[in-house]
């Protein structure tokens, strides 16, 4: 939701390890992060902090890692999963790689790499040129009000 960014982060995991020097906290073992309607579940979540202690970037990896958010009240929940999910808080974008999959309002996108710009609600995906793996997408029948 638009006001997700004002909410504070709730985190839980089996273990936590602090890395003061690099301003990083790593949660491993059924790690779960929530900020408003934004939820990330993965095996390990690494939270990178800025100098001013605000969150700069969250990197989650898992078999797969899961991401969920409701962009706005009238829109459906965006749910995604991938081997690696990186949430860049400063520009409010999410990058998914390693058989990434993103679903919203019935539209499902799968492929090598998917980027989701939350502010502009823009999802773009790149196929893997070398191994000639295109992006797959399922577009639901248009529900047109006659």
């Amino acid at each position: 939701l638009p006001d997700d960014r004002k909410q504070d982060f709730q985190l839980q995991a089996n273990q936590q390890t602090f890395d003061q020097k690099n301003g990083r906290v790593t949660y491993t073992g059924e790690a779960r992060l929530q900020q408003g309607s934004l939820i990330i579940r993965a095996d390990t979540i690494v939270v990178q902090f800025n100098q001013d202690n605000s969150v700069e970037k969250i990197t989650a990896s898992g078999q797969p890692a899961h991401f969920e958010q409701q962009p706005s009240v009238e829109r459906g929940i965006v749910s995604a999963k991938a081997g690696i999910i990186v949430y860049d808080s400063t520009v409010n974008t999410v990058s998914l790689s390693q058989n990434a999959r993103l679903e919203q309002d019935g539209a499902i996108m799968q492929g090598h790499e998917i980027r989701y710009d939350i502010n502009r609600e823009l999802v773009s995906a790149k196929g893997d040129q070398q191994r000639d793996q295109p992006i797959q997408m399922t577009i639901p029948p248009a529900v047109i009000e006659q």
């Binding site: 539209a107 492929g111 823009l122 196929g127 040129q129 992006i135 997408m137």
Partner: peptide, 8 residues
């Protein structure tokens, strides 16, 4: 659909 790259 399949394509090299898709933008929604």
């Amino acid at each position: 659909a399949t394509a090299h790259d898709i933008q929604a």
